[in-house]
Structure formats: structure tokens, C-alpha cells
């Protein structure tokens, strides 16, 4: 199940939010060796102050965070423009009404294995499907992100190959690319098929509440 949380209402979810920041510390600091700042076991950066939209994959009890990703419009402050701008030539900076940026995509490593017969794990698939579902609701064409090579392989395997718009660059211990992936009914179906999802991963009460901000 996926929960949508506006950055502006994070105080209402202290437990889930700290679970999310802890998972990010584990993945980006401990595992990937990115130069991120971790305090008290929580990874928080300047874009967490920009009222992003968080997507949290939670366990069925709704208390444990299994995965997370964060969305920001590319018309305002975002990581590619403000941090990773060296990755793309200046005249190709991505700034579009219908492209949002996803960042800090992280999944609990202990549940990373896909179910038998599927290509990607449930939490990874849920998050990716949720990004596309939100994108469809918001009228987006693409979601942009700085993806590592492993994630690019996952997307390819899922039948939604990202469009890579930068040369590979080394960040921490991994090669990364700036990529765009498509927001469409078709890409949603590909992801759903690749991890065995049926129907929407968004919880309807949560969606109506968040859409009223």
C-alpha cells in the first residue's frame, strides 16, 4: 500500500516520516556511499524543506516504511537544477510543466527479492506504479530522476526503459544517469505486470485527502 504525504503535513506522521528518513540514511549513506548528511540516523536534505510530495510504501499495518520516493516539480527548486546540474548541459536543463522529478528512491533491502516468477519486488513495483498513477492524475508526461545503473536495469526489465539524457557519472559507489520515464497507462501496466500488482496501489481516502491538500 502506498501513502501520499505532502511535505507541509509531515508533522502529522512523525513515526512514518522518521522511518522514511532512517531508510534513506541506510540506503544512500551506508549502502551507496553518497555524500549525504545524516543526523541521529536520519537523512534529511534541503529539498525536504520544499514541500515535496512523499510516496511511502508501508506494510499492511500502515506502520512500517518499506520504501519511499519523493516528487518535486521541475519548474521550482529541484535536485537536478540545484545539485546535479553538472550532469546535463545547461541548454538541456529540464524544466517543464509536465515533468516532475523523483528523488531519494529507496526500498528496504530486507524485502528486496521479487515474488516467484516476477521481475521486480513488490515494494519497488508499488512505488514505481504509484509514481505513474500520481503522474496520470496530475497530467504529467514524464518523471525525471537521477537513476543508478541498477535502477535503469530494473526499469528496462519491467518494459519501461528510461530515456537517458546524460552520460553516466560516478556518484559514490555507483554509475548514475539522468533519465526520464514515461507516464502513461501503458507504462503503468508494464510495471504492474512486472511485479504482479492488480489495480491501483493508492488508497482512495488518502488520495482524496491529499488532493485537497
Amino acid at each position: 500500500m502506498i501513502l501520499l504525504i505532502n511535505g507541509s503535513e509531515k508533522e502529522r506522521y512523525p513515526h512514518l516520516m522518521s522511518g522514511m528518513h532512517r531508510l534513506r540514511a541506510e540506503i544512500f549513506h551506508s549502502r551507496l556511499g553518497w555524500d549525504v548528511s545524516v543526523e541521529n540516523g536520519l537523512e534529511i536534505d534541503q529539498f525536504d524543506d520544499e514541500n515535496p510530495l512523499y510516496l511511502l510504501a508501508v506494510d499492511p499495518t500502515g506502520t512500517r516504511v518499506r520504501g519511499t520516493v519523493r516528487l518535486l516539480p521541475t519548474t521550482g527548486p529541484n535536485m537536478l537544477r540545484d545539485v546535479f546540474h553538472h550532469l546535463v548541459p545547461e541548454d538541456e536543463m529540464i524544466e517543464s510543466a509536465t515533468i516532475w522529478e523523483c528523488s531519494r528512491f529507496a526500498v528496504d533491502p530486507s524485502i528486496e527479492a521479487p515474488k516467484d516468477g516476477y521481475l521486480i519486488s513488490e515494494a519497488t513495483g508499488e512505488l514505481m506504479a504509484a509514481v505513474i498513477e500520481v503522474g496520470l492524475l496530475a497530467g504529467l508526461t514524464e518523471v525525471m530522476g537521477v537513476f543508478d545503473a541498477r535502477f535503469v536495469r530494473i526499469l528496462r526489465a519491467a518494459g519501461t526503459p528510461p530515456l537517458l539524457v546524460s552520460k553516466p557519472q560516478r556518484i559514490g559507489s555507483c554509475l548514475t544517469y539522468v533519465g526520464l520515464f514515461e507516464v502513461s497507462e501503458q507504462s503503468l501496466h508494464s510495471i504492474q505486470a512486472a511485479c504482479g500488482l492488480k489495480g491501483s496501489v493508492l488508497e482512495s481516502n488518502n488520495v482524496s485527502r491529499v488532493f485537497a491538500a
Partner: peptide, 10 residues
């Protein structure tokens, strides 16, 4: 506070 479009019905 939001980045999502808001439907007034909500």
C-alpha cells in the same frame, strides 16, 4: 502547500 492539482470537490 501541494504540488498536486486540487479539485475543489475535495
Amino acid at each position: 502547500k501541494s504540488i498536486l492539482p486540487v479539485d475543489w470537490n475535495q
